[in-house]
Design a protein around this nucleic acid. Structure first.
Lengths: 151, 151
DNA sequence: ATTTTATATTTGTATATACAAATGATAATT
DNA sequence: AATTATCATTTGTATATACAAATATAAAAT
């Protein structure tokens, strides 16, 4: 559906505004769809993001600032996100012995197990949308978004 | 910047995942940039969205459910958004005489004045990003996002 | 050695969002 | 006419987010 129909726009809008609304609305659609997948596991999208970052570390601990700079939403409060994951035993947290300002966060086996169970569902989610596009269009969309962002 | 660089990804990712992350990250960049514009006016992006919907009504009142269905984020709590706008005298709210379940929300002159003052800044914001693309690319990006969303 | 600056993280607080339940009004059914 | 169903909105509550201030440690400067 075109963005004007989605938002039942009464006034015509130019293509620059349409991109903004299309990106915002598409993000909403993606996020809501993904939340449904995560619901049975009782973790939020942001918490999932942290777990993925930790798994990507391949056994090495990540500090809070490393997690932060790899998050999609850079402004979210990493401390409290890790708090939530800690309560569910999905991560461990300890003070870094070399630099006691830093915190070392590691994903637990339980965390890895949940990610493993989620993996096929996450791939299905990604393809649920991208299957509407040809492989050329997929590449093109990524390029256009990256070009669009570059101020 | 490519999305892998932005998120300092250690593991390679396929293009379907890249689209998800590109959309989510681009939304964040747009929203943060726009919040800066709105900051001096002390309204949030969602509140601005409501004001735009009300102006689009061209003098006709909008009910809560009309506002809701035209919002970009359909899940936000319209009642409380309108509460905030009411406190700042940017809208009026009264019970619809024909159907007392409904609420009629109208933008005030003060609301219209703020929108008018914001208009050029909003257009500049839209073009700040889209200026990176040719007019063909702008059309293409809109088409791809719309096609991508269509399940 | 002490002070200053920079870094890493946490905490406080106000606001926003998500979702279910409650309220009140109208329409449909018996 | 009374009951039930539907609709429109609000409210309660728990959680999330945004942003500034506080804390604690380390490094640099005096």
């Amino acid at each position: 559906m075109k963005i004007e129909e989605v938002l039942k726009s009464t006034v015509p809008m130019n293509n620059s505004k349409k991109i903004i609304l299309n990106v915002l609305y598409t993000q909403n659609v993606i996020t809501e769809n993904f939340s449904e997948i995560l619901k049975p596991y009782e973790i939020s999208g942001e918490q999932y993001n942290v777990l993925r970052i930790l798994r990507g570390q391949k056994g090495n601990p990540a500090n809070m600032c490393v997690i932060q700079e790899r998050m999609v939403a850079k402004t979210s409060n990493t401390t409290r996100l890790v708090d939530k994951l800690l309560l569910k035993d999905l991560v461990t947290r300890k003070v870094c012995p070399e630099n006691r300002r830093k915190i070392e966060v590691l994903i637990t086996q339980k965390g890895l197990d949940i990610l493993k169970e989620l993996d096929p569902k996450v791939i299905a989610h990604e393809e649920f949308f991208s299957k509407n596009l040809s492989s050329e269009e997929i590449v093109q969309l990524n390029q256009l978004l990256e070009k669009y962002r570059n101020q």
